[in-house]
Amino acid sequence: MPVTNPWLSGPAPTARLDHARLSERVLNLLSSQNMCVLATAGPAGPLATPVRYFHLDFTLLFTAAAGSPKLRNIAADPRVSVGVFAPLVGQASSRGAQIFGRARVLTDADEEYGAYWPAVRWQSDHVERSRSLDDPPRGPLVVIPAERIVYTEHWLRRDGFAPRQVWRPGPA
């Protein structure tokens, strides 16, 4: 039987990418996708929520309605996990990341809000809803600086690297 990707067979390699190459691959994934699944835990238990995200380097950002279940959970426990993934066509296309960090909820009254807000592309939502572009939203902004990222890309096997790599801030 013909095999499309023979390099996928057999044991997976174990070699590690250097920090710069791994960082580049993670940023490529974050830049090429815009949806994630946010996992939180709160008094009512776990919650996995699809969310449109934006990013500044390795910090994920998203807006949320004040008082939403995800914001209530973040208030109870700021530790979150975020799953970002590319569409799966087959094993060779498997590419995604599990991002772990502590979420912070910022409002326009917070000093840091202005540093993150320009990365949020809210204008298309306003146009879609016939809202004025002169009146940007003022709702909460959730900021998640990555503390650890587990990156998976099976295409790495072709070059002799482990398909699962672990990223941490700073050179490793």
Rank of each mutant, 00 (worst) to 15 (best):
L38T: 02
Y151A: 00
R164W: 06
L17Y: 07
P2I: 06
G114I: 05
R148N: 04
P118S: 10
G90Q: 11
G45R: 03
L38P: 02
M35G: 03
R138D: 14
R21T: 11
P137S: 11
R168W: 03
R148C: 07
R131W: 12
R129E: 15
C36L: 14
S31Y: 02
Q98D: 12
I144K: 00
S31I: 03
P137I: 09
A115Y: 15
A162L: 06
E112T: 07
E111G: 04
R158E: 15
D135R: 14
T4N: 09
Q123K: 14
L61Q: 04
L29E: 05
P6G: 06
R95I: 06
V166S: 08
S31E: 13
P145D: 09
A44T: 13
M35F: 09
L141T: 02
P78V: 02
T63Q: 14
T59P: 03
P137K: 10
T40W: 00
T40R: 00
A162M: 07
L60M: 13
Q123N: 08
G10W: 13
L22M: 08
V37R: 03
F54I: 00
P46E: 11
L30F: 15
N28P: 00
P50E: 07
P145R: 08
A12H: 13
V143F: 04
E111L: 12
V51G: 00
L56T: 10
P2N: 07
A109C: 10
D18V: 03
P136I: 01
P78Q: 05
P46D: 08
I149H: 12
E112L: 14
A92W: 13
P145N: 10
R25C: 03
T59F: 04
S23E: 06
Q123Y: 12
H55A: 13
T152C: 10
A75I: 03
D134L: 15
R148S: 06
V3T: 13
S9D: 12
P87I: 13
A103S: 07
V143G: 02
L47W: 00
P2Q: 07
Y113F: 14
R131P: 03
S23T: 11
S124N: 12
V143E: 07
F161V: 07
A20K: 12
R79C: 12
R131D: 14
W167C: 01
T107V: 04
G170R: 08
V166I: 15
A44N: 11
R21Q: 15
A48Y: 01
S132A: 11
L88Y: 15
R157K: 15
G83P: 00
R129M: 15
V3N: 06
W7V: 04
F85E: 04
L29M: 09
F85D: 04
L133N: 09
E153I: 02
L71T: 01
V166N: 09
P171I: 05
R164L: 08
P169I: 09
A15F: 03
P137D: 08
A41H: 12
R104H: 12
V82P: 00
L133K: 07
R52M: 05
P171D: 10
